[in-house]
Measured scan of single mutants.
Amino acid sequence: DHWHVHIDGERIRLDGASEEFIRTLEELIRRGTDARELKEIIKEYLR
C-alpha cells in the first residue's frame, strides 16, 4: 500500500507504513502535535 500525508504543505510518502502507524499518526494529528515534530516521527519510522 502507498500512503502519504500532507504536513505543512509538504507531501510525505509513507511507503510500507503499517495501518497501526497510520492510526498513531492520525491520533497525534488529532492531539495537535506540531508539524515539525510529526515530520521527525515519520523520518524516524521510515529509517
Rank of each mutant, 00 (worst) to 15 (best):
S18W: 03
E27V: 09
R31T: 08
L25Q: 00
L38D: 00
K39S: 05
V5P: 02
T33I: 13
R23L: 09
I29R: 04
I12D: 01
I22V: 10
E10T: 06
G9D: 06
I22A: 04
K39F: 14
A35Q: 06
E27H: 10
R13W: 15
L46G: 02
E44L: 09
I41P: 00
F21D: 01
G9W: 04
G9T: 04
R47T: 10
D15P: 12
R31C: 05
D34I: 06
D15V: 13
H4G: 05
E37C: 06
E26C: 09
L38R: 00
H4E: 14
A17K: 02
I12N: 01
D8P: 01
I22S: 02
I42D: 00
R47Y: 10
A17P: 05
I29S: 03
G16R: 09
R36L: 10
H4W: 12
R30S: 10
W3E: 05
R23A: 09
I7W: 02
G9L: 03
K43W: 14
L46P: 02
R23T: 06
R36N: 14
L46C: 02
H2W: 08
A35V: 11
E44A: 13
G32M: 06
D8C: 05
S18A: 09
E26V: 11
D15C: 02
W3K: 13
D15Y: 15
L25A: 01
E20G: 09
E20H: 11
I29V: 08
R30M: 10
S18R: 05
R30E: 07
I29L: 09
E19K: 13
H6P: 02
V5K: 03
E37R: 13
E40M: 13
D8S: 05
R30W: 10
L46W: 13
A35R: 05
L38A: 01
I41Q: 04
D34T: 15
R13E: 15
I41V: 10
G9F: 04
E27T: 13
Y45K: 02
E37T: 15
E19W: 15
I42Y: 03
I42K: 00
A35W: 08
D34P: 15
E26Q: 14
E27C: 09
R23Q: 09
K39W: 15
R47C: 06
E40C: 06
L28A: 07
R13T: 15
R11P: 12
E20S: 13
I29Y: 06
E40N: 12
G16M: 07
